[in-house]
Simulated scan of single mutants.
Amino acid sequence: MVQMAASHACYPIEEDYEILRHAGYFPTFTHISGNEDCNPESWICNEISKDYAYDYHEIFLRMLNSVDMPQSHWLLKSPLHIFCLDKFLQIYQNALLIMTHRNLDEVLPSLCSLSLSGTELYFDNTNSISRDRIIKRSRQFFDTQIECIMKF
């Protein structure tokens, strides 16, 4: 977990990502799946509608808002929204989207490192087959994110 902390900035408030995980919307599980046929694109784009996750997300935020309203607005910054931007904007019609940009030469190694550190509990990091599969799936995950943004 030390490597995970070094790979990814942690903030005291990360409710957006956690709300989606509560709803069962957690495509990063494809990185650690033992199923060789499991890949991010098939799970994210083809398997099931993600409407349920955003219905849950909206209800959860509404309840959270009733007891702990932010001073100005909610900042929803989970990268998982990339896969369902149409649904996201259907639920949050007044949302403003901000797209940040980083050099792909920095982002892809960072994503692979984050994926490897996030799965270190499940795999021996000296196991090259597991490591190579996680890196391959990280690249597939990233490719799918780019495709979703381009389609949107």
Results as ranks from 00 to 15, higher is better:
residue 92 Y to H: 08
residue 118 G to R: 03
residue 134 I to Q: 00
residue 110 S to L: 00
residue 81 H to G: 00
residue 114 L to S: 04
residue 70 P to Y: 03
residue 82 I to Y: 06
residue 90 Q to R: 01
residue 84 C to L: 01
residue 123 F to H: 09
residue 101 H to F: 07
residue 116 L to V: 10
residue 74 W to M: 03
residue 98 I to K: 02
residue 134 I to N: 02
residue 128 S to E: 15
residue 68 D to K: 14
residue 129 I to C: 11
residue 82 I to H: 04
residue 123 F to T: 08
residue 81 H to F: 06
residue 124 D to C: 09
residue 113 S to I: 09
residue 133 R to C: 07
residue 109 P to K: 00
residue 109 P to Q: 05
residue 131 R to Q: 13
residue 83 F to G: 05
residue 130 S to N: 14
residue 98 I to E: 04
residue 77 K to W: 06
residue 83 F to E: 03
residue 126 T to E: 14
residue 130 S to D: 08
residue 131 R to Y: 06
residue 103 N to S: 09
residue 114 L to F: 09
residue 112 C to A: 10
residue 85 L to F: 02
residue 89 L to C: 07
residue 78 S to W: 05
residue 82 I to K: 02
residue 125 N to Y: 09
residue 119 T to L: 10
residue 71 Q to N: 15
residue 115 S to T: 11
residue 123 F to M: 08
residue 123 F to S: 09
residue 108 L to G: 04
residue 67 V to F: 14
residue 134 I to V: 15
residue 97 L to M: 12
residue 72 S to N: 15
residue 95 A to R: 05
residue 127 N to V: 10
residue 85 L to I: 07
residue 119 T to A: 15
residue 126 T to H: 11
residue 100 T to H: 05
residue 128 S to F: 10
residue 88 F to A: 00
residue 97 L to S: 01
residue 82 I to F: 07
residue 129 I to L: 14
residue 93 Q to W: 07
residue 108 L to M: 08
residue 81 H to R: 00
residue 76 L to M: 15
residue 105 D to N: 11
residue 91 I to F: 08
residue 88 F to S: 01
residue 106 E to H: 08
residue 121 L to P: 12
residue 89 L to A: 01
residue 106 E to I: 01
residue 73 H to D: 14
residue 68 D to S: 13
residue 120 E to M: 14
residue 68 D to I: 10
residue 105 D to H: 06
residue 74 W to H: 10
residue 113 S to M: 12
residue 120 E to Y: 09
residue 111 L to P: 05
residue 122 Y to G: 13
residue 90 Q to W: 00
residue 69 M to C: 13
residue 96 L to F: 10
residue 103 N to P: 12
residue 95 A to I: 01
residue 85 L to R: 04
residue 79 P to Y: 00
residue 104 L to F: 12
residue 78 S to M: 07
residue 98 I to F: 12
residue 86 D to K: 11
residue 118 G to W: 05
residue 69 M to H: 13
residue 108 L to F: 02
residue 76 L to P: 03
residue 126 T to D: 15
residue 69 M to R: 14
residue 99 M to L: 12
residue 98 I to L: 14
residue 67 V to C: 09
residue 86 D to V: 00
residue 73 H to A: 12
residue 133 R to W: 09
residue 94 N to W: 08
residue 95 A to G: 02
residue 81 H to K: 00
residue 98 I to A: 07
residue 92 Y to T: 05
residue 71 Q to M: 13
residue 112 C to Y: 01
